[in-house]
């Protein structure tokens, strides 16, 4: 479960791919923790290549959102497939985590 990063307009974009479930959630968490520095102010998690996310995976995203909130950084997820978006809606996570259609839209929203 690798996480790749790039930077765009002072925003860190973290991206991963495949299934995020109970079997690799810990690995995902470690990779994400390592990718996000405590000095970051804007972080976008790009889920375009993620095919499935279980509740264990949602928990990692929640922990990331909470720790970014502590360091007063802004956080959003973007480019969710229809099934991932449904998971965010059913679980209600879209109420506490900003969800955007595209990377550019997310970056714009965090800048504002």
């Amino acid at each position: 479960m690798g996480v790749t990063t790039e930077r765009q307009d002072n925003t860190l974009i973290a991206k991963t791919e495949g299934r995020i479930d109970g079997a690799n959630a810990r690995e995902f968490q470690d990779a994400l923790d390592a990718a996000i520095d405590s000095s970051e102010r804007q972080v976008v998690l790009d889920l375009e290549e993620v095919s499935y996310i279980s509740s264990a995976g949602l928990r990692v995203i929640l922990l990331t959102a909470k720790s970014l909130q502590k360091q007063e950084a802004k956080f959003a997820v973007c480019s969710l497939s229809e099934s991932i978006r449904e998971i965010f809606e059913i679980s209600g996570f879209d109420q506490i985590i900003a969800v955007h259609d595209s990377r550019d839209e997310a970056i714009d929203a965090l800048k504002g």
């Binding site: 509740s55 949602l58 059913i90 209600g92 996570f93 506490i96």
Partner: peptide, 27 residues
């Protein structure tokens, strides 16, 4: 935050109940 229940009628037809929009508990 849970998935919608199904209501199943005596003829076997069924539909998902609408979500009520609550978030998973403890979040």
């Amino acid at each position: 935050g849970h998935n919608s229940p199904l209501i199943v009628h005596p003829d076997g037809s069924s539909s998902l109940l609408p979500l009520t929009g609550g978030i998973a508990l403890g979040v």
